[in-house]
Amino acid sequence: MARTCLVVDDSRVVRKVARRILESNGVAVIEADDGQAALNACREQLPDCVLLDWNMPVMDGLAFLRALRQEFGPDNPTVVFCTTENDFDHIETAMLNGAQEYIMKPFDEDILTGKLAQVGLL
């Protein structure tokens, strides 16, 4: 069965780029445009991995991550933050709240597939 990745970003362009890269690497993609929609998607079908934006309307990435970990535990699914927020405080906060990895926008296929290989998705 194919691995699944939930791509959570309020940018349709970012979701489309991530989808193209992931699907070309054999990963099934689910999309959500904010944290609340992502949490609902996880309740329907828990993905293997979440590619998570930080700044979104309704529920931001950090609030989603905290809710996800509270509801589903500390390890699953794997969460990779994907954001323009690149200062150490943001990275540390993400990791302390249960993210496994962190990548910067803009990303390309090599960056994304490299990180996903590190966390065991590819």
Rank of each mutant, 00 (worst) to 15 (best):
E101V: 00
I91G: 01
I91V: 15
D89V: 14
A94D: 01
V7I: 11
P77A: 11
R19P: 04
F81P: 02
P106Q: 05
Q36C: 08
V13C: 06
T83K: 09
V13H: 14
E23R: 15
A18E: 08
V17Y: 06
R43W: 01
L22C: 12
F64H: 07
L46E: 04
I91F: 03
V7Q: 04
N40C: 00
F72S: 13
V14C: 09
Q118N: 10
L62C: 08
R3C: 02
R15N: 07
D60Y: 11
V29R: 06
N76T: 12
D108F: 05
K105R: 13
L39M: 11
L116Y: 01
T83G: 07
G73P: 14
D34E: 12
D53C: 11
F72T: 12
Q100T: 11
A67M: 10
L6M: 09
Q45N: 07
E44C: 07
T83H: 10
Y102G: 04
A117H: 05
M104W: 05
G98M: 04
A38G: 15
D48C: 02
G120T: 02
L121M: 01
W54L: 10
Q45C: 03
L22W: 01
T83D: 02
L112Y: 00
Q100L: 06
C5E: 02
D110K: 13
P47V: 03
G35R: 02
L68G: 12
G114F: 00
A2G: 07
F81G: 06
V119D: 01
L96P: 00
A38N: 13
E31F: 03
L46D: 03
G73V: 07
I111F: 00
R43Y: 03
L22Y: 01
G114S: 12
G98K: 05
N86P: 01
R19V: 03
W54D: 03
N55E: 15
I111C: 06
L96S: 13
L65N: 14
C82R: 04
V79E: 09
I111E: 08
D34S: 10
D75K: 12
V14W: 06
V8N: 08
E71P: 00
C49Y: 04
E71W: 06
